[in-house]
Design a protein around this nucleic acid. Sequence first.
DNA 1: TGCTCCGCGTGACATAAGTCATCGGCGGGC
DNA 2: GCCCGCCGATGACTTATGTCACGCGGAGCA
Lengths: 246, 246
Amino acid sequence: MGRIAIAYNGGTMPDLKTDSAQTLAQVPIFASLTESELAFLAQRAVARNFSAGEQVFGEGDPCTGMYVVSSGTIRIYKTSAGGREQVLSMDGPGSSVAELPVFDGGAYPASVAAMADCRLLFISKNDFHALCLAHPEVSLKVLRVVGARLRRLVGIIEELSFTTVRHRLIGLLVRLAQREGTKTETGVEITLQVNNQELAAQLGTVRELVSRNLSRLQAEGFIRIEGRTVHVLRPKDLEGELEAAG
Amino acid sequence: MGRIAIAYNGGTMPDLKTDSAQTLAQVPIFASLTESELAFLAQRAVARNFSAGEQVFGEGDPCTGMYVVSSGTIRIYKTSAGGREQVLSMDGPGSSVAELPVFDGGAYPASVAAMADCRLLFISKNDFHALCLAHPEVSLKVLRVVGARLRRLVGIIEELSFTTVRHRLIGLLVRLAQREGTKTETGVEITLQVNNQELAAQLGTVRELVSRNLSRLQAEGFIRIEGRTVHVLRPKDLEGELEAAG
DNA sequence: TGCTCCGCGTGACATAAGTCATCGGCGGGC
DNA sequence: GCCCGCCGATGACTTATGTCACGCGGAGCA
């Protein structure tokens, strides 16, 4: 995977500008801005492309600004001394990233990398600051999306503190089945987009435990695994398992 | 512990008003307000007293507003189905509580209870909203304190995901030693303000493991325990243990 | 003074989590 | 077609975590 990130310098090409404005218009926190305001912001935003796996910034790097996902998906994660990773969030087009560290002056609290090829818009700290002061509604919107972020983090803490890997894995499967599952005669079918290593990072454990727990769920008849396709045979029972264990 | 919370209705007594204004003046997010603005806010704030252990609100309760700690200390925590608790934050005078859920319309994501007798000021959702729109700097201040909160949550996730109970316990002791330890000839002396059950909730584990790990640290010569006083005999070595284990 | 409740320490287990090593398959690149 | 590297499965262990049960001792109360 060669490092082939290309940084455009503030939109020298007009079509790029338009593109940026369109992206920004779809971002919740900028939803209340007028077209001219969006255009202005788009002009100051810098588009950067990242290839799959490439790091956008690292935990501890000084925070120079925030990003908006234009296309692709990014993951926000922490890395342990031993090399393990814990995913905090995955965000797709329209999501803002690192809205918070922009405000408290500290470094980025976690790393961000592209999961697939990505196009991100970078908005500098100062620009964003000025925008918030000029448009109080933007701050409120930011607070709203940050609220959601905080809820998710609390959810992760809850899961890590109270539940087992098995439980978290089931939770993940159930969520996937509900959100993007395809109904079949035998149940619901889902496709895992990532390898076991990545699943482990999302669940806060290691590769082997994901593998073992998946096998066990299959042995118990809850699912049938075919490569990265998972047939959830008894969705209701699987959800029941979530309640069962304390 | 009888429920002896008393709700004053919007400050009918003048001295209470003054009191509230003084409290509010010390809250970071209101630091930029003028005296008259503070007075106005104080007039609309409702003071409520809570006795030690009493719950302020519960996880899942509809969010009607935010609180400011006037005196005492509160704890923010999650409760598991099995009755275990995980502390997310402990906040003293001047801290704001539940600034975030106010904005995203959801319920309170965690419970809050008084650790010691407390006096809190309640500020309704609408009042706070209006304030933020009228004073954009307030939003920015809120974003700053929320940033700190998010960092702490990420830190908790990191610890839960990557480290052992022993490691977290050592971390807690080291932090206490640095923040409120007293130097003696033999090392640093700290006093635990709470019982093992509470320590366990702060570390995300159970009473027994706290007890065992403390005993083990003593057996290893790192600390000497006398009731709730802990002599940290070799502070440097203890800090070294934090790096050692992955 | 005696009793009871609470907090604490511990032993004995059961089980979950994580590490290390190995094996087999599949697919991409040469 | 062949080789190599990534990925997944799995066995064998070690260690951490959590549960249950029990005993001790001090503080507070009748």
